[in-house]
Amino acid sequence: MSTLSTTTYAVAGMTCGHCEATLTKVIGELDGVTEVGVDLATGQVTVTGAAAPDDARIAEVVDEAGYELTGRVA
């Protein structure tokens, strides 16, 4: 049985449902990602996958989508 890894990031610039859908799509397309949760109220994105996500790759796709990953949430 494998254990899933969950990481939460703070993302700046999310304001609406379109933002939520965009980030869910672009992050969800990354290899190994099984689930993406976006919380507009807190500005957080939670990424779940079989292994810990590549922070640099997550930051890259978030930036390409027009948002800013400001760090991991403890």
Rank of each mutant, 00 (worst) to 15 (best):
S5K: 10
T46A: 07
D54N: 10
A10W: 01
T7R: 07
R57Q: 06
A65W: 00
I27D: 11
T15S: 11
K25Q: 06
G37N: 04
D54C: 04
V45Y: 02
T42D: 13
A21C: 05
V36F: 01
G13D: 12
A12G: 05
V61C: 14
T70I: 11
A41I: 03
A74M: 12
L23S: 14
S2R: 08
A59V: 00
I27P: 04
G71I: 13
G13E: 12
V38W: 03
T42H: 09
L69V: 05
A10L: 02
V36A: 08
D55H: 08
G28T: 10
V61E: 15
G13C: 05
D63Y: 02
A56S: 07
T70A: 14
L23I: 15
V73C: 07
V33C: 15
E60M: 13
V61A: 15
H18P: 08
E60N: 15
V26A: 11
G13Q: 11
T22L: 10
C19K: 08
A21V: 08
A56G: 06
T22G: 12
Y67T: 12
A74E: 13
T46W: 01
D31Y: 02
G43Q: 05
S2Q: 09
I58C: 04
Y67G: 09
G49T: 02
T48D: 03
A59P: 00
G28R: 13
G66W: 03
M14A: 04
A50T: 03
E64V: 12
A12Q: 11
V33G: 15
L4Y: 08
T3N: 14
A21F: 00
V38R: 10
A52K: 12
G43T: 06
L69C: 06
